[in-house]
Design a protein around this nucleic acid. Structure first.
Length: 428
RNA sequence: GCGAGCGUAGCCAAGUGGUUAAGGCAGUGGAUUGUGGUUCCACCAUUCGCGGGUUCGAGUCCCGUCGUUCGCCCCA
């Protein structure tokens, strides 16, 4: 029979890897909660028009990467390709702005884009993201950047680089776009083919082309910084100054252009050299126009998203996964003993111990071999004689030392404390 | 959507046209019918992703197909 495989671009996150995911999720939640960010869980699919309007019709995400289909009611549905649009929709629909002040939100979960998979890129991938809605202060930009760097640093990741840019407001960008096109037109024939096409469609994207020749041309292109309005410039300067005050290193990159239409002012990416072609671990920026664009009140906002798969690739290069090693491994043989072992396992677990029960019923020798491999601190042995006497043989696997313990005594408070201390000692 | 590489056991693999497809890890059973970490022995692919072709003969060469990896585009 033909085995059914996971679809292209999807994969199983197996137990060994899940421990990394849990580590990231735990740390992220800790750090974000300390900054009083609250979790929000919007749906995984939405009306297609949300993304068309929110992300921008001209973007590649909307143009060729969305998982869009008709449901049984003939509605056009799209699996979310990113998190911000859904959060903003929810913010508007639930009148979260009516609570006044600033909303600090975070989310985590799967996103979907129909692309060819490669290193650090899947069709179903996962992001953790934050959105701060309702503040136009540069301090909000810096707060979210600091949270991202804090999380990455806490996880032990080094040699990450923060790239920073400002794409100004709508007007700044229009003027800059014109200047850029004027600069590029004489070079038309020297540009790579993709960039030639982008000259009319999306000229800003030419700036971060990977073609060597195009890059060379881009390096000397007019910089957007010279086209920023006074307010935009002030915002950008303030962000830089605050980052410096916080001791967060960054480099200005006038070629950094983010792909989604909704970005304004601050744009940033955190990159790693250890990821192959898909180097960006975290991308984000300010999007002051999006809430209004989606029908809400004028609301400035800033946020980022971290690519979980990419982050975990880096983490795996750095450290071995934490493995669960049981406190006790329960070896038993014979109907009566096996029944008692089950009860003891249950009680020890209730008391807070980690207990692995051998289910094989095979020879003691085999069970001990498995006990050893499990990494358990101690073995509890129940055979026929123990079952008869209602005792259990406690064997410390490091020293080999054994003692017979009454089954009832094993579960009294005093002995439990003693056991916990001993186990703590053995684990050191 | 485009380009390149790769598909041999649960995993890592040798094999580059000639009888029965190395080896290692893991697994199972035994030496050891109630005591582990070492060791030793045995077992573990009627078949090399799938389909077709060339050939006396194909895991090996050719075509197609599917999968996968890396890259382009794009993005987290």
């Amino acid at each position: 029979m033909r085995v059914i495989q996971a679809l292209r671009g999807t994969r199983d996150i197996l137990p060994e890897e899940v421990s990394y995911w849990q580590l990231v999720e735990t740390k992220a939640k800790e750090i974000l909660t300390r900054a009083v960010y609250q979790e929000i869980r919007p749906p995984i699919f939405e009306q297609t028009s949300l993304f068309e309007r929110g992300i921008g019709e001209g973007t590649d995400i909307v143009g060729k990467e969305m998982y869009t289909f008709k449901d049984r009611g003939d509605r056009s549905i799209t699996l979310r390709p990113e998190g911000t649009a859904g959060v903003v929709r929810s913010f508007i629909e639930n009148n979260l702005y009516a609570q006044g002040g600033v909303q600090r939100l975070w989310y985590a979960g799967p996103m979907f884009r129909y692309e060819r998979p490669q290193a650090g890129r899947q069709r179903q991938f996962h992001q953790i993201g934050v959105e701060v809605l309702g503040s136009d202060s540069p301090r909000a930009d810096v707060e979210v950047i600091a949270l991202a760097t804090d999380l990455l640093k806490t996880l032990g990741l080094k040699s990450l680089k923060l790239d920073l840019n400002s794409v100004g407001n709508q007007k700044d960008r229009e003027q800059y776009r014109e200047a850029l096109v004027n600069y590029l037109i004489p070079f038309h024939n020297e540009l790579d083919r993709d960039s030639q096409e982008r000259l009319t469609r999306n000229p800003l994207r030419i700036l971060d082309s990977k073609e060597a020749k195009t890059q060379e041309i881009a390096q000397n292109a007019p910089k957007i910084w010279d086209y920023l309005s006074n307010d935009s410039k002030k915002h950008f300067d303030r962000v830089q100054q605050l980052l410096t005050d916080l001791g967060i290193e960054y480099q200005l990159n006038h070629c950094l252009v983010r792909g989604l239409d909704y970005y304004t002012h601050t744009a940033f990416e955190i990159k790693s050299d250890d990821l192959g072609a898909q180097a960006t671990v975290c991308g984000g920026g300010r999007y002051d126009g999006l809430v209004a664009e989606l029908g809400g009140p004028e609301t400035p906002a800033v946020g980022w998203a971290i690519g979980m798969e990419r982050l975990i690739l880096l983490l795996q290069q750095l450290q071995k996964p934490p493995i669960i090693q049981p406190d006790f491994y329960l070896v038993s043989r014979g109907d009566k003993a096996e029944a008692q072992a089950l009860v003891i396992a249950q009680k020890l677990r209730t008391a807070g111990f980690t207990v692995e029960l051998d289910l094989s019923g095979s020879a003691f020798g085999k069970q001990f071999k498995r006990a050893d491999r499990s990494g358990a601190v101690a073995c509890l042995v129940l055979g026929e004689s123990e079952a008869e006497n209602e005792t259990v043989n406690l064997k410390w696997l490091i020293s080999g030392e054994q003692q017979s313990v009454n089954q009832v005594d094993l579960l009294t408070q005093i002995n439990l404390l003693e056991l916990k201390n001993k186990i703590a000692l053995h684990k050191q």
